[in-house]
């Protein structure tokens, strides 16, 4: 295996252009190799020392999160815990303290696991990723980024540099809730994120719900019928029903499809 540590973003992009695979914390790449899931790539470039990828900045329009920001930083950053609570919730649930210390948002996003915890909050918060290569730069909404389990709509030479999350409107809130069998070291059995904006009269102006681990990618729930309704217990029940019926879970060792379908509705409506 070829290995180098990039000291500038250009160095990293050059390495990717010649076929290297980026590594940040290694919590997916190295662990997958140790599981025997996928061998380590022939060429790896470490991107964990690129300061360009480590910043969290906020403008009036958006919060811009470097791809190298760790879950441990996300869950304690004021900009994230304030306006983007759903993302902070999810970051705090990832793995263990050691995983959260090494694992990055960019890594989580590019690994494209349908069970990733930060995915559903990013979808409901309308996040997009910036992809850079030696050929240039483009932006892609996360919902278009994931095309299947572990698959993204990116080219191998593209590096995710930042995740851009538009500033939510006033009277907005978000949250992420996960079903877990124990309190730590868990992988989502199912999970749900919600983002809501209320109108002046308290009715639903915008509502987005996305689901974890009940489909080949993070799943967005179609909720248009609820816009304009007041947020009542009946509305919440409807959210649960829509989430359950639109989910497409599989059965595996963690849970049956039937249980997942039921539980994801519970997660979707839960405060």
């Amino acid at each position: 295996m070829q290995f180098s540590i990039a000291t500038t973003l250009d160095e990293a992009l050059d390495a990717l252009a010649t076929g290297a695979c980026p590594i940040a914390g290694g919590t997916d790449l190295v662990v997958a190799a140790r599981h025997g899931k996928a061998p380590l790539p022939d060429s790896v470039v470490a991107i964990d020392r690129l300061s360009e990828l480590q910043t969290i900045s906020s403008t009036a329009d958006a919060t811009i999160i470097g791809a190298g920001v760790t879950h441990a930083r996300l869950m304690t950053n004021d900009a994230v815990t304030g306006a983007l609570a759903g993302l902070a919730d999810a970051s705090a649930l990832v793995g263990s303290p050691a995983t959260r210390n090494l694992g990055t948002l960019g890594g989580n996003v590019m690994n494209a696991s349908p069970a990733m915890d930060t995915g559903a909050p990013l979808v409901v918060l309308n996040a997009s990723v910036t992809l850079r290569s030696t050929r240039g730069e483009r932006s892609l909404p996360v919902a278009e980024l994931w095309v299947g389990p572990g698959q993204t709509a990116t080219r191998p030479d593209e590096l995710c540099t930042v995740i851009v999350i538009p500033t939510p409107r006033v009277r907005s809130g978000s949250a992420y809730v996960r079903l877990e069998y124990r309190r730590a070291m868990e992988i989502a059995v199912v999970g749900a994120a919600a983002a809501i904006t209320l109108g002046d009269d308290g009715s639903i102006e915008a509502l987005a719900v996305a689901l974890t681990a009940v489909g080949p990618t993070i799943l967005s729930v179609e909720l248009a019928e609820l816009v304009g309704h007041p947020m009542t217990p009946e509305t919440l029940e409807r959210v649960a029903t829509l989430a359950s019926t639109q989910s497409t879970p599989i059965s595996d060792g963690r849970a049956s499809d039937r249980y997942r379908r039921h539980a994801v509705g519970i997660m979707a409506k839960r405060r």
Partner: peptide, 13 residues
């Protein structure tokens, strides 16, 4: 056959 799927209780539990 691994500790992610064979779930021991953690210190948090």
């Amino acid at each position: 056959a691994g500790l992610l799927e064979y779930k021991l209780q953690t210190a948090a539990d």
